[in-house]
């Protein structure tokens, strides 16, 4: 049996919370992982509640964020391993998935992950047509054809014969 002296901090560390996605899935997360999110940390400080419902994050996105939080809360992993996890984490993810992720990390205020995801999105956006960007972000082109032509004329040095992708 372990003595109470050792047991005390051990159980405190293993305290966990339940996080519920907007579509009803619940995730058991260690408190040490949850508090890496500034938003969750604030909630946990204010109330003793151990169930947090996130009304605007779906289960798939939440699962990814929690996987990230749990990995980064693991004291047994070296910083190098965590870094390579980060790289692995965003690689190969669809732009659509990243959009939900970036929004979720912004809501939850998981700053490091937000940066990593934003960086990955930026990498994907390179070599894409302006039309592609508009489509992905649901942006209505608010330029008149004349105004757009004028912008292309003014910034002419950007509009050369580069090979750009539309998908």
């Amino acid at each position: 049996m372990v003595t109470t002296d050792e047991k005390g901090p051990l159980t405190a560390k293993k305290k966990s919370v339940i996080i519920r996605s907007c579509d009803g899935d619940e995730f058991l997360v260690s408190e040490s992982a949850a508090v890496l999110s500034t938003s969750l940390k604030k909630i946990l400080e204010e109330k003793e509640d151990r169930l947090i419902h996130l009304s605007d994050i779906d289960n798939k996105t939440l699962a990814m964020v929690i996987a990230y939080l749990s990995t980064h809360a693991d004291d047994g992993l070296s910083d190098d391993l965590k870094r390579s996890f980060d790289q692995e984490f965003v690689s190969g993810k669809e732009f659509d998935v990243l959009k939900y992720l970036v929004l979720a990390t912004d809501t939850l205020q998981v700053t490091c992950l937000c940066y990593t995801v934003a960086k990955k999105m930026a990498d994907i956006m390179k070599n894409k047509l302006v039309e592609w960007v508009r489509r992905e972000f649901d942006i209505q082109n608010d330029y008149t054809p004349e105004a757009e032509a004028e912008i292309r004329r003014l910034d002419a040095w950007a509009w050369d014969d580069r090979q750009l992708e539309d998908d």
């Binding site: 940066y115 934003a118 390179k126 942006i139 082109n141 608010d142 330029y143 910034d155 040095w157 950007a158």
Partner: peptide, 28 residues
């Protein structure tokens, strides 16, 4: 702002930097 800043920071030389002007032409 964060995403576009990352695009801007990562391409410092031409012609790759053209992507910054593309961002500027998406909408107002």
């Amino acid at each position: 702002l964060d995403i576009i800043r990352r695009v801007e920071e990562s391409e410092t030389a031409w012609p790759a930097r053209t992507v910054v002007l593309f961002c500027a032409s998406v909408c107002r």
